[in-house]
Design a binder for these strands. Structure first.
Lengths: 105, 105
DNA sequence: AACATAGGTCGGAATATCCCGACGCGTCAA
DNA sequence: TTGACGCGTCGGGATATTCCGACCTATGTT
């Protein structure tokens, strides 16, 4: 069974889109499928990939399955990117903003 | 000619490794090929993918070609990840460290 | 000139990815 | 119970990825 790493999971735009959707809260498969031009089986298969990458968790609710975001594996990507941080200072600026907002809260 | 986006370029471990090498400075293809268990043609093809994703730039030098890292497209990945930042606060901690080092320099 | 070295590219094979229709199973509604 | 709905999965087709040996060209060496 190939395909378990986070980087590969993020390589597909549909899967990235699904994760974006899930940011706003748990969603049933049918809701997720709405808004994509691919069929429902394809969505199910993408969710399987995301599950193997531990990026989502499923919660059966009646005859539906609600998928929850688990963003923790994304920290692996973040850590990898950090090795390149000093090459573009955009990140430090963004972090400054975050910290400022944090202070004025 | 498919394959130009950054996320797909990062999906392959050999390509990620190449980018890591290039952090330390420009490298000729032969140097890059050393240390991988894949042959030189494969490396050339990976470099083509990285080139299409604009993650590397080539500089011919005699009969060699030195590849340079261009990390700017990585900011797209970083920006994407930022949409998930508030879900795991690991990032803020790391940023704090960076800022501390910055201060004591 | 003759040869070696560096590296791109071209078939082509093996495998992976992506998608679909069809089917099956469990759950809710009538 | 009968039917509809929600969802996973299987078989299979189309396309993409990854890798290799073989070949070519350009540059350097002797």
């Amino acid at each position: 069974m190939p395909q378990t790493d986070v980087f590969s999971a993020l390589a597909n735009p549909v899967r990235r889109n699904i994760l974006m959707q899930l940011r706003k809260g748990p969603r049933a498969v049918k809701e997720l499928a709405r808004g994509f031009d691919v069929g429902r089986p394809a969505i199910s298969e993408h969710l399987q990939v995301l599950r193997k990458a531990r990026l989502v968790r499923e919660e059966p609710r009646g005859r539906e399955r609600y998928y929850h975001l688990d963003p923790r594996p994304l920290s692996e990507v973040d850590a990898w990117l950090e090795a390149f941080t000093r090459y573009w200072d955009r990140r430090l600026a963004a972090l400054g903003e975050v910290l400022d907002k944090e202070k004025t809260r």
